[in-house]
């Protein structure tokens, strides 16, 4: 950050920071200097329809939005750029894990102190970010993981719930991190935690891999309730329930051949 005198807007008081702690009823806005030091990383593949809206919603409060277009044949990159994101392009599709790592590397190289991973299909809620970034800014933890199961508002389709719960069990067996929601794309972490990430599983199994790496870092973490908006679009665009086995296989082979 620049060392110029803080204005009323950018000044961070402890009261501002605690505002995002637990109270979710009132809309919470993080202090500007925290938001300026936050980079939001979005991996996008064929998301031309939703990415513009998602980026605009984020950019209204968070100036640093990095979209990694994972070789989409459609206008994903253009829409993201039009909405004001920094766009990185994989000119060949490499998978979501690969794209996230690209965005994280870029954000770290450009001095981001807080990093957020966010999904491109509009399933995450910008209003959840203060609860995720707040604990990092207050120095309480280094990693905040979103959990849809901690959230009372959650309306998760029945079969999706079963598959996700199975994924949680899987993660408990393979990693030692006790989580209620293993495959949530909404996470926030500090620069320190980000530097410890090196995703090697290019496709969807990165969700387990990132949890492993967080766990091995020994840094403090916390789960935070977040809302997932299951829309017809996000369900059609997202992972099919049947993809779960493939992801598990990918992950196990990845651990064997590391």
């Amino acid at each position: 950050m620049s060392t110029s005198e803080p204005t009323a807007l950018t000044q961070t008081t402890p009261a501002d920071l605690t505002a995002g702690a637990s109270d979710t009823s009132a809309p919470v806005v993080l202090p500007l200097d925290v938001r300026e030091r936050t980079a939001i990383v979005i991996a996008a593949f064929r998301e031309a329809r939703s990415i513009g809206l998602v980026v605009r919603e984020l950019r209204a409060l968070y100036p640093r939005v990095i979209v990694v277009d994972d070789g989409s044949p459609d206008a994903t990159a253009d829409e993201a750029a039009k909405a004001g994101a920094t766009v990185l392009r994989h000119f060949v599709n490499r998978g979501q894990g690969a794209a996230l790592q690209t965005g994280i590397s870029y954000a770290l190289a450009h001095g981001a102190e807080f990093l957020v991973t966010f999904d491109a299909d509009g399933q995450h809620d910008v209003a959840d970010l203060p609860a995720l970034i707040g604990p990092l800014a207050r120095g309480e933890v280094d990693i905040c993981l979103g959990s849809r199961f901690l959230d009372r508002r959650a309306e998760i389709p029945f079969f999706r719930r079963i598959v996700l719960k199975a994924a949680v069990l899987f993660t408990r067996v393979t990693s030692r991190m006790r989580l209620t929601d293993a495959h949530n794309g909404l996470r926030a972490f500090t620069r320190k935690a980000g530097l410890g990430i090196g995703l090697q599983l290019d496709r969807m199994a990165h969700a387990s891999e990132i949890v492993d790496q967080f766990y091995r870092s020994g840094l403090r973490y916390r789960e935070v309730p977040v809302r997932i908006r299951y829309t017809a679009y996000s369900l059609a665009k997202g992972q099919r329930n049947s993809a779960a086995l493939k992801v598990a296989f990918d992950y196990l082979i990845g651990r064997l051949t590391r």
């Binding site: 490499r94 998978g95 690209t102 590397s105 870029y106």
Partner: peptide, 17 residues
């Protein structure tokens, strides 16, 4: 090989940006 391609694509994406 897969990993190496990813590293390559990542490097290009970041350098282009």
């Amino acid at each position: 090989l897969d990993r190496q391609i990813t590293v390559l694509v990542r490097r290009l994406a970041i350098e282009d940006a």
